[in-house]
Simulated assay, not measured.
Amino acid sequence: MTTTTGTKPSPFVLAPRHTHVKVQRHSGDSGGFARWYLRTIAPEDLRTLGSDLAGEAGEVLHGTDGGEFSFSFDQKDGVAGFVCTDVRGNPMDITHEGHTRGRVTIPGPGFIAVTCLGPWRLKRL
């Protein structure tokens, strides 16, 4: 399951064994959404996890190897974090210390979804 908030794109990794996507609206008094679309992004079109990366919103990165990284999320509310999958889309456990600043250990090659509503930074240690 993935959750989206706001009007910015919300990238996520879908394992190949999943063949359908269900969109369900969850809203309170703020209304809902007018439209949405889903598109496939080839791994070679994703940014590669390198020594120092920054972004303005959630993003999926292609990691060719693992490692230990420092991170910072510059948002005051909402959920920020990481979701890692191997190259086949299967979940990988990560070691994560801190909420808006800290360290994360990415176990190996795969995809790293950075979930954040604002600017973020990842730097290899």
Rank of each mutant, 00 (worst) to 15 (best):
L38Y: 05
L38G: 11
L38P: 11
L38M: 13
L38T: 11
R39K: 14
R39S: 14
T40G: 09
T40R: 14
I41T: 14
A42W: 00
A42F: 00
A42L: 10
P43M: 07
E44A: 10
E44T: 07
E44V: 08
E44R: 06
E44C: 00
D45P: 04
D45R: 11
D45S: 13
D45F: 01
D45C: 07
D45V: 01
D45L: 06
L46A: 09
L46T: 06
L46N: 10
L46D: 07
L46Y: 08
L46Q: 06
R47N: 09
R47I: 05
R47K: 13
R47S: 09
T48K: 09
T48L: 06
T48W: 00
L49W: 04
L49C: 05
L49Q: 03
L49K: 03
L49M: 11
L49H: 02
G50F: 05
G50L: 05
G50K: 08
G50T: 11
S51Q: 11
S51R: 12
S51T: 13
S51W: 01
S51P: 02
S51H: 10
S51G: 13
D52Q: 11
D52E: 14
D52G: 09
D52K: 10
D52H: 12
D52T: 11
L53K: 04
L53C: 04
L53P: 05
L53A: 06
A54R: 12
A54Q: 15
A54E: 14
A54T: 15
A54C: 09
A54S: 15
A54I: 10
A54W: 04
G55H: 02
G55V: 04
G55R: 00
G55D: 08
G55T: 05
G55F: 00
G55Q: 03
E56Q: 14
E56W: 04
A57F: 09
A57P: 02
A57I: 07
A57L: 05
G58Q: 00
G58W: 01
E59P: 05
E59C: 04
E59S: 06
E59L: 08
E59N: 06
E59A: 10
V60D: 04
V60R: 03
V60K: 04
L61F: 03
L61I: 03
H62L: 15
H62K: 14
H62P: 12
H62D: 14
H62S: 15
G63D: 14
G63R: 11
G63V: 14
G63S: 15
G63C: 15
G63Y: 11
G63H: 12
G63L: 14
T64E: 12
T64G: 15
T64W: 03
T64V: 11
T64A: 09
D65I: 13
D65R: 15
D65K: 15
G66T: 10
G66A: 08
G66K: 07
G66Y: 08
G66D: 06
G67P: 11
G67E: 08
G67Q: 05
E68P: 06
E68Q: 13
E68K: 11
F69M: 00
F69K: 02
F69L: 01
F69V: 04
S70P: 05
S70W: 01
S70D: 13
S70G: 12
S70R: 10
F71M: 02
F71T: 00
F71Y: 13
F71E: 02
S72R: 09
S72T: 10
S72M: 01
S72F: 00
S72W: 00
